[in-house]
Every structure is written in structure tokens, then in C-alpha cells.
Design a protein around this nucleic acid. Structure first.
Length: 804
RNA sequence: GCCGCGGUGGUGGAACUGGUAGACACGCUAGCCUUAGGAGCUAGUCUUCUCACGGAGGUGCGAGUUCGAGUCUCGCCCGCGGCACCA
């Protein structure tokens, strides 16, 4: 071996050094600008760290180390999102308490993360399952509860018998559980709900100011699903009531030829005429029994039943039949629609099947050969709206509705309230007590309500949570009244909704965080994590934060200023890593073989952070080779500083390259373009190696610039270069614009758009002189020849274009 | 169906606001060194014609704008992710 690079020895040495010196301890310091940089904290699973994890962690670490050298006071913490189903399921199988499993998994995760050499402030480590932590999760719940943002309701929930729990809408995918892929059914159950819908507008507006990927913002916008339209009141002569419908197309009101209610609509019974009772009852029961799976998979063709009664279209006073169908959802709008088959494909399908009248109210173009026509055009068959375009017709009909008290403009959201309870053991207990139908908050001084030890973690078939087995814990006497604790627990999202706030003041036992400290660190300046949290975690956390802001507990409305999603690491075959494919890479093995610095460098060099990229064994070997090249450049066979390093000054070419490199690496780290920063460092190494003697200043700059990426080997080399102080305390180098400039540059000469020659010129050369120089070039002469030069274009220091 | 992102050598990827396409690396080929190497070093490597000099073509496909298009406009094709009866 030419190189004596021993990554085991070097990495252990420096990891111990950082730990011993608490090198990354963050202390509030108003004299310095702060930078709060956060990873999405992991769920410590039994499988250990996945190779995907270190990608994001390394990215934040590079930025953290860079920002420290830039003079920022950096907060870079790590913790554990440790409540969750796997530990509980393991407990069901083995009887091992989830706390034990969780603690073991955390120890393993921490050990693995530490071997990567990440610059976390470990004194701030938090764990969502620690009573000292969830005390404050419960405290925040009480803030919501006291503000009437938490309530109990009997709601149709997504009940999953296999998991023995209810799931949030967001956890159900195609009628199956997101975890485990088990069937999910709609059943009514008493549940805790959080009124996130009250914050729809706030959450939507807040997005505009965020430096987040456009795609993620768009996902959230779609999830919130704001639509503008109108509410229209339809009178029901048979029962002397009215039904309000929501529509985004009030302009088509004259084309509303029938009405459809959701099967669950409360007026269905009263609107059903005796002759239709049997059929209607059958249809309603069938619809209620259907799981979401059945609704999405089997509902290719629309079904429905006529109730036998009529509603009055307020625009033209026509009696229109009322139907029920499960294509109308009780959970959106008012659970009733006006059907306009001429302009809505769903209504068209239904009308065709049941032979209901179709009236077009927008004139389609001549060549239109589709069914429902939903694009713009002049209104027809619409009385006073005739001839108007959609926008104007909408405005006019809304005016008319409001004047005649038959409706008004309205806004609807797709977002529903957040189902916040789970029938599980391993979660935060709700800090409330039931007294004879009344619900009371547990006094703040009695927090936390700790999870009791229980024998049986199994939920009952009816959905009674495991905590109903918790004997003595269950009943409480307060002031002579006896009550029963809530036996549901909070969902896993609860702990992650605010952990970034606890990081700013993690050991505070008197309050969730100190306000001054909070306003020093918040908001999170850079948040990096997986795209899979684009809606769930990030929307929930924003919701809590908006509430806390309104209550004056936090100083910023939005918690995460800049968000970046790291791309997935795929298997070497380009497919998603999975045990069944056998393409899983274990980070422990890689670090043992090549070292943490190689792994870090590989991740950062692989490609743009946000992109999905396949793992590459030869790629990591390449990174390892680069580190060894640098190592052997600076050291001799005895491990001493190489004799080729000397105090000579760098020549002009090298000086220029050094300054260009400082500039590029700095700019690239700021923009999170790590791969191109590294490629520039490689160019610098290649250039230095061409010299017989390596100027010490050049080598030192290289080590400084590389240190955020490969900190261990850089610390070691820095020490060999004769410095006592660690790189962490060094200043990031500054570049000189002047020295980075080329003395002579090569510009291209194009003739009629084709590159024909290159000429060497002084920077900033003017068009005339450039042309003169170009015309001396043989190849240019050849192409210009006798032709007349019609036009020339000079792009400064780039290219000269000649048109002949 | 709708929304978002993407398509550049054998591979990962470069290319600033329209300005020399393929930086840097991997892989491969040849050579050197070596008892040997899967270690290291040197050279080459988009395709194609040419001994070379130098041409021609080339960024998913087809048009367009421009002195000049990977980059901008329009129309398609393909891949990935999300939403999916939301009225």
C-alpha cells in the first residue's frame, strides 16, 4: 500500500476528540448570527439505519460545519421519533415492553449515526417517548383543547381490524392501510378530532412566503383543496325544507336538471316516498357497509336510486328529481349537489344511465364531439346569463342569488378535521378525564399523564384500546368526583409536530421552551428530509405552529423557512432498495470497509441532493480513492508531512485556481450543490499534484475547503500541517475576485452559428479588437473568405459570432 | 383523467441569466511499475469520416423564434412521484 491512510484509527480519534470537547455544543450567543439546521428525526426501527438516512444527514452536516466556519452560531440537533406501531407489535408477540425495545433501537441508531461523524449537539438529544418530553406534547394538546380546537365526535372512521386501530385519512391508501396494506372499513366511533379545518386559509396563505420546493407547496395546496364557488338553496316543497348545495359552477344553474344527495344525507329518509322506501333503504345500507376499497375499486359505473321527491331549481323554478348516489360524498361540501350533466362528466354519466334530462348551458365549439363540456364559451339556455363567458356569468348569477336570498358566494376546502386518536398502547396518553359525559383537562401541574405498565397490549375486537386494561390507572378521584381516563392515545405525528421547538431548550422542566431562547433560534433555517412527509408531518407541524403563534407561544408563524427533500438512494440495480430484491446496502459495512469520510464524500458527489440516485459500489471506491490521493499527496510513507510541501508561493496559474475554487466551493455549498463543489476540489488536487513542490498555502486551503465533506481526514491532515487548533474553529477562507480572474482567456469564434476557431484574448476585449484578432486566424479566413461580414455579436469573454 | 418532477456518452452527472455540450468521477482500452494485483502511475475514451490536419452529425421526437437553443415557445412520446368521483 502506497498510502498509510487508516480510516478506522483516524475517524475514531477525531470522533472521540469532538465528543470529549463537546465541539458542537450550541450556546445561545446574541453576538453571532444564528443558523438552525435540522434533519427530520428518524423513527428508530429495529432494522437500524437505512442507507437513505445518511444522505440527508451528511448534507445538513456539511452545511453546519461550513456555517460554523463562516462565523454562525449553529444549532444542529438530533433526536428520536420513538412512539409507533412496530415496537408495540413486537411487544404483542414477545411481551417485551415497547420502552425496552425502543431504548435498544435508539442505542443502535445513535451508535450508527455517531460513526458517520455528524456534528450534532448530543446534549440536546430528545426522545418523544420520554415522559419529560411528552409532558409537553400533552401540554400543547391542552392548549388546543382549551381553544376548542380539540373535540370528541362520533365519526365514521377508517377502522382497520388487522391493526386493531383507526387510521387518519392520510394513512389510508386505496382503501388499505399505508402500513401493512390491510383492508380498512368505514365505521362510526367516538374519536378525538383536531380542528385543522379552522386553519385552512392560514395554512394555505402561509405557503406563499416559504422557501420550499414548489412541488411540496403544490401538494399541500391540493391537499387543502380550496375552491371558490357558491352555495345555492333549493326548496323542497314536499317537506317544507330546503337543501343547500355547494357548486364551483353557479353559472350552470339553469342546467341543473336533477339533484343528488349522499346516501348518508340526513334528509334522505324524509324525502323518500313510500313506494321507493325499500329500494332506497337497500341502497343506503349497501353504501354504508362499503369500505373505501370497495368504493374506489368497484365504482367504475355510477349507481343510484330516485327518492321520489323533487326540489325546485331556484333559477327557473323547475321541479327536478332528487336522487341518492355514493358518488356524492357526505364529507365534502354539504353532502348534496346540483347535477349539471351538460357541463360535468360525472353528472353526464349518471344522467345517461338513468335517462335524466341534459341541458347545455355553455355553447361548445362546433368541432366539439365530447360529452360533458367543461371549457369556456358563451352561456346558452340560461335566460339573463345568455351570451356571457363563465367568469362573468358566475359573477352575475351570484349577484342574483344574493339579491333574491337564494344563495351566496362560498369557499370550500377538501381538508377535513384531523382524526387524532389511536386505539394503541405505545403513544402519548391524552391528558383528559371523563366525568359522566363531561370531559375535563388534567391540571397542568399534574402533567405528564404517564403511560401505565400493562400486561396485555392487545386491543379488543370492538376497538377498545389497550389502555382499557390498565386497572388502577384508569380511574381517578378528583375532589370527590370519580372519573375515567381517556384510553385512546395520540397518533405518531403528535411528537414530531413540535420537536424542533424542544430542541431549542430541551432540558427545561418548567415550560416547553423559554420564549427568549425560542425567539433566538427559531425559525428553522434549513430543514432536510424525505419527500414522503410532504403533506402529513409538514402540514400537521405547521398547523400546531400556527396555533401556538396565535396563542403567543412562538415568535414566528411558520416553523420551517427553507425545506429541501433529499432524493431516495436506490439499489445498485436502479430499483428501490428492498430485502426481497436483495439490493440492500448496510451503512455499517460500508463505513467499516471504506470509512465515514468516503461514505460522506460519495453521497455528496453522487449527484444533486434532491434527485433519486442509485447506489454504486465503484462510486464509493472512487471517493475512497480520492481521499487516499489527497492523503498520499500530503504525507510520506512514514505518515509524516510530505517533503514536497514547501513554503514556496503558488505560481499564478495555481493561485488563480485556488481563488476560483474558494469561490466555487463557497457558492456551491450555499446553494446545496455539493457534487459540483467536490468536482472543483478534485480539479484543484489534480492541479497541485502536477507541481514538483506543493505550496503549503495551497495545501492548507484544500484541507480547509474539504473539511465540511471529509472532516476526520482533514482534521488529521490539519494536525500534521502543524496546527493545534481544530478546523472547527478556523475561518472559512475568503477569495479574491481579482486573483480569480484569468489573464488570458480563450473565446470561441462562430461563423454563421458554427464554431470555427478559438482565439486567446485579454479579458474584457472589445468587439472590434476581437474581430481583428479573429480575422488573423487561418480557419476564420477560410470561412469568411470573400464573403461580406453582415453582422458580429460579441458575448463578453465568451464568444464572437460572425455572420457572413 | 388532473397536478408536480424529469428524459444529456457505456454509467452517475456538468453546462451561470440563450453563448465553445459532455466538466468531475465511474467504467472501459492501451502502456508502465510489480513475483502478482482487484494497489499505483501515464495516455485515450460522444458517434462517424480521416494517418493526421480538419470535417460532418449529436442533449426523447417534430416544428418554431434567434447570428446562436440542452436552455425559450408550441405540439407529441416515454419514465417517476402525488391526487383521484372534492361538485
Amino acid at each position: 500500500m502506497v498510502s498509510g491512510y487508516d480510516h478506522h484509527q483516524i475517524e475514531q480519534k477525531w470522533q472521540r476528540f469532538w465528543e470529549k470537547n463537546s465541539s458542537f455544543k450550541a450556546i445561545e450567543d446574541n453576538s453571532k448570527p444564528k443558523y438552525y439546521i435540522l434533519d427530520m428525526f428518524p423513527y428508530p426501527s429495529g432494522q437500524g439505519l437505512h442507507v437513505g438516512h445518511p444522505l440527508g444527514y451528511t448534507a445538513t452536516d456539511v452545511v453546519s460545519r461550513y456555517k460554523r466556519m463562516k462565523g454562525f452560531n449553529v444549532l444542529h440537533p438530533m433526536g428520536w421519533d420513538a412512539f409507533g406501531l412496530p415496537a408495540e407489535q413486537y411487544a404483542l408477540q414477545t411481551g417485551t415492553h415497547p420502552a425496552i425495545t425502543t431504548a435498544e433501537n435508539i442505542d443502535n441508531f445513535r451508535r450508527q449515526i455517531k460513526t458517520i461523524g455528524l456534528s450534532y449537539d448530543w446534549d440536546r438529544e430528545i426522545n418523544t417517548t420520554d415522559p419529560k418530553y411528552y409532558k409537553w406534547t400533552q401540554w400543547i394538546f391542552l392548549q388546543l383543547f382549551n381553544k376548542d380546537l380539540a373535540y370528541e365526535a362520533e365519526v365514521p372512521v377508517n377502522w382497520c381490524p388487522e391493526l386493531g386501530t383507526v387510521l387518519a385519512n392520510e394513512e389510508v391508501v386505496d382503501g388499505k392501510s399505508e402500513r401493512g396494506d390491510h383492508p380498512v372499513y368505514r365505521v362510526p366511533m367516538r374519536q378525538w378530532m383536531l380542528k385543522i379545518t379552522e386553519y385552512s386559509e392560514s395554512l394555505l396563505e402561509g405557503l406563499d412566503e416559504l422557501d420550499w420546493p414548489e412541488g411540496v407547496k403544490e401538494l399541500q395546496r391540493n391537499w387543502i383543496g380550496r375552491s371558490e364557488g357558491a352555495e345555492v338553496i333549493f326548496q323542497l316543497p314536499s317537506i317544507d325544507e330546503s337543501i343547500t348545495v355547494f357548486t364551483t359552477r353557479p353559472d350552470t344553474l339553469f342546467g341543473a336538471t336533477y339533484m343528488v344527495l349522499a346516501p348518508e344525507h340526513p334528509l334522505v329518509g324524509r324525502l323518500t316516498v313510500p313506494n321507493n322506501k325499500k329500494q332506497v333503504k337497500k341502497y343506503v345500507e349497501k353504501a354504508l357497509r362499503k369500505s373505501d376499497l370497495a368504493r374506489t375499486e368497484l365504482e367504475k359505473e355510477k349507481t343510484g336510486v330516485f327518492l321520489g321527491s323533487y326540489a325546485i331549481n331556484p333559477a327557473n323554478e323547475e321541479h327536478i328529481p332528487i336522487w341518492i348516489s355514493d358518488y356524492v360524498l357526505m364529507t365534502y361540501g354539504t353532502g348534496a349537489i346540483m347535477a349539471v350533466p351538460g357541463e360535468d362528466q360525472r353528472d353526464w354519466d349518471f344522467a345517461k344511465k338513468y335517462d335524466l334530462p341534459i341541458v347545455r348551458t355553455v355553447q361548445p365549439p362546433d368541432k366539439f364531439d365530447g360529452e360533458a363540456y367543461s371549457d369556456d364559451g358563451p352561456s346558452v339556455n340560461s335566460d339573463f346569463l345568455n351570451g356571457l363567458k363563465i367568469v362573468d356569468a358566475k359573477e352575475k348569477i351570484i349577484d342574483w342569488l344574493e339579491k333574491n336570498k337564494r344563495g351566496c358566494s362560498a369557499i370550500q376546502y377538501k381538508l377535513r378535521d384531523w382524526l387524532f386518536s389511536r386505539q394503541r398502547y405505545w403513544g402519548e396518553p391524552f391528558p383528559v378525564i371523563h366525568f359522566d359525559g363531561d370531559v375535563e383537562a388534567v391540571a397542568e401541574t399534574d402533567l405528564p399523564v404517564e403511560l401505565p405498565e400493562i400486561e396485555d397490549y392487545k386491543p379488543s375486537k370492538s376497538g377498545d384500546p389497550p389502555l382499557s386494561n390498565a386497572g388502577g390507572w384508569l380511574t381517578v378521584d378528583i375532589d370527590g368526583k370519580s372519573g375515567i381516563r381517556e384510553t385512546n392515545t395520540m397518533p405518531q405525528w403528535a411528537g414530531s409536530c413540535w420537536y424542533f421547538l424542544r430542541f431549542v431548550d430541551p432540558h427545561n422542566d418548567d415550560e416547553p421552551w423559554n420564549k427568549d431562547i425560542e425567539s433566538y433560534w427559531m425559525p428553522v433555517d434549513l430543514y432536510i428530509g424525505g419527500q414522503e412527509h410532504a403533506v402529513l408531518h409538514l402540514l400537521y407541524a405547521r398547523f400546531w405552529h400556527h396555533v401556538l403563534y396565535d396563542l403567543g407561544h412562538v415568535s414566528t408563524k411558520e416553523p420551517f423557512k427553507k425545506l429541501v427533500n433529499q432524493g431516495m438512494i436506490l439499489g445498485e440495480d436502479g430499483a428501490k432498495m428492498s430485502k426481497s430484491r436483495g439490493n440492500v446496502i448496510n451503512p455499517d459495512v460500508i463505513i467499516d470497509k471504506y470509512g465515514a469520510d468516503s461514505l460522506r464524500l460519495f453521497y455528496m458527489f453522487l449527484g444533486p441532493l434532491e434527485k433519486a440516485k442509485p447506489w454504486s459500489t465503484s462510486g464509493i471506491q472512487g471517493s475512497n480513492r480520492f481521499i487516499r490521493r489527497v492523503w498520499s499527496m500530503l504525507t510520506d510513507e512514514n505518515g509524516d508531512l510530505s517533503k514536497k510541501i514547501s513554503d514556496i508561493e503558488a505560481d499564478n496559474d495555481l493561485t488563480r485556481l485556488i481563488h476560483q475554487t474558494i469561490k466555487k466551493v463557497t457558492d456551491d455549498i450555499e446553494a446545496l450543490r455539493f457534487n459540483t463543489a467536490i468536482s472543483q476540489l478534485m480539479i484543484l488536487v489534480n492541479e497541485i499534484k502536477e507541481r514538483d513542490k506543493y505550496p503549503k498555502t495551497a495545501v492548507e486551503l484544500l484541507v480547509l475547503l474539504m473539511s465540511p465533506f471529509t472532516p476526520h481526514v482533514c482534521e488529521e491532515l490539519w494536525e500534521k500541517l502543524g496546527y493545534d487548533d481544530t478546523l472547527i474553529n478556523c475561518n472559512w477562507p475568503e477569495y479574491s475576485e481579482k486573483l480569480a480572474k484569468e489573464e488570458l482567456i480563450t473565446i470561441a469564434v462562430q461563423i454563421n452559428g458554427k464554431r470555427r476557431a478559438e482565439i486567446e484574448v485579454a479579458p474584457g476585449i472589445d468587439e472590434e479588437s476581437a474581430l481583428a484578432l479573429a480575422l488573423e486566424h487561418e480557419n476564420v479566413k477560410k470561412y469568411v473568405d470573400e464573403n461580406e461580414i453582415k453582422k458580429t455579436v460579441l458575448v463578453k469573454d465568451r464568444l464572437l459570432s460572425i455572420v457572413v
